[in-house]
Simulated scan of single mutants.
Amino acid sequence: MSKLAVLPLAALAFSAAAHAADIDVQLGSKERVTRLFAYPNNCNVICFRNWTLEQTVEHYLTQSVQRDGYSTAKVSVKSTKNIVHAHISGVPKSYGQPLSALLNAGDLAYNGASKLNSDKKWAYNWYLFLPLGMALENRKSVELLHFPPDYSLTQAQDYLESATTDRWATLLTVNGIAATQTPAYQTIIDIAPIAAPSNAGQALEGVYDYFNDYQTTMVKQVSQTASGAALPMVAFGAPVRNWIKTQYGQTVGVLGLATITPAAGLKVPVLGSNHPSYIWYAADPENYDGDQAKADAAGLKVMGQDLSAACWQAGMGSKPGTDPTQQLNQCTQTWQVTQKEQTCELFYTSVRKLTPDEAAKKCATPEIKSQLPQLKTPMPLPAEHAEHA
């Protein structure tokens, strides 16, 4: 599935006419750009992709302009006297501002990572990795996550290429968002800007304080549009929801709502959610002494919660100004009551890998049908792990 958003043709025609401009953005010294773009992304004697620094920067900036809907935009990156410049055509004149703001926040992340390393808490297989290649301007919603998996950097060179983001993009499409539009909803801020192995979650839980300046700067910048309107935010997983509590004093449980104020006058609605990959853990029979029925019941519960959260994100992002509580009530009613059979079938096709026909038959059996009314009822689940996959 392509991860690059494409605006409808009419919107593109308008965008091209209204916004076409050539801009030059000074990105800084080669040393600065090298560290902020994690260059080289994937070299161990042999480079997986043998790109220059300039090609690497072009790659990520091209992802951004395309995810912003500027499909005809062109990016060219050159270095002159140790200074790296980006020339971007076919974007608004103001487009350099959010790019420069991201890199300035990146300097804060680099300072935090340097301090972490000087305190001997940095691991040999971690990489500083900023959320490069995201939509910089035309965002619909924000996702607050824990950390990016290392393969998004070293293999994909794509922040949105991971099991976590793929699953959530699928849930957004089930909730009416076109697959080409999901990147606009998935602007990610990781509270630990460190690409690390998928099982590094526990080790990373002690590093957040080093990145306070970076985290709060990013949340302030990304959670509002250029005109200052607040964007909806989803906080994924226990470590992130705990961070919201620590940083902003708001408690957000799974499908719990809160409002944070990252900047004066800016009120950002935040929904708590399971981590997108949590369902694989919650539905693992090994967590229930091999009891498949209990594992399925837990998986169905999480599926209902996840579909409801993605529904809220889709609704809030596509219709700015919607009341967050009303939207959440509507979404939980849809996926945990009215369309609970579809929730069931989606669990069995996406997690248990049954065919649609097999899933429909499974969800029609008396033992499963009897569980579906319980989607609205809290039930004990295994504790959320902090791993990212």
Results as ranks from 00 to 15, higher is better:
K3H: 13
L4P: 01
P8I: 09
A13W: 11
S15Y: 12
A21H: 12
D24C: 07
G28R: 06
G28D: 03
G28S: 10
S29Y: 10
K30R: 15
L36T: 09
A38C: 11
A38S: 15
P40V: 12
N41G: 04
N42K: 07
C43Q: 15
I46H: 15
L53M: 09
E54S: 05
Q55L: 06
T56P: 00
Q63G: 00
Q63V: 01
Q63F: 02
G69S: 07
S71I: 13
A73S: 12
K74N: 09
K78I: 10
I83L: 15
V84M: 09
I88Q: 02
S94R: 13
G96P: 00
Q97T: 08
L102P: 01
A105W: 05
A105V: 06
D107G: 05
L108G: 02
N111A: 15
G112R: 07
L116K: 02
L116M: 09
S118T: 12
A123I: 03
N125M: 05
L128P: 00
P131K: 00
A135P: 01
A135G: 07
R139E: 05
R139K: 11
V142G: 00
T154F: 03
Q155P: 01
A156F: 07
Q157N: 10
Y159D: 02
D166L: 09
R167E: 08
L171Q: 03
T173C: 01
A178F: 09
A184N: 09
T187Q: 13
I191T: 00
I194D: 00
G201V: 01
L204M: 04
V207T: 06
F211E: 01
N212F: 00
D213M: 12
Q215K: 08
Q215D: 10
A226E: 10
G228S: 13
A235L: 04
N242A: 06
K245W: 06
Q247N: 06
V252F: 04
V254N: 04
A258N: 11
T259D: 04
P262A: 15
P269C: 09
A283S: 14
E286F: 04
D289I: 12
Q292Y: 10
A297T: 13
A298W: 04
V302G: 05
V302L: 10
M303R: 13
G304S: 07
A310D: 05
W312V: 03
Q313R: 03
M316C: 02
M316D: 01
S318C: 03
T322A: 09
P324W: 07
Q326Y: 06
N329A: 03
N329C: 01
T334V: 10
F347E: 14
F347I: 12
T349E: 15
S350G: 12
T365D: 11
K369S: 14
L372A: 05
P373T: 09
L375T: 02
T377E: 08
P378G: 03
L381A: 06
P382V: 05
P382K: 04
P382S: 03
E384H: 04
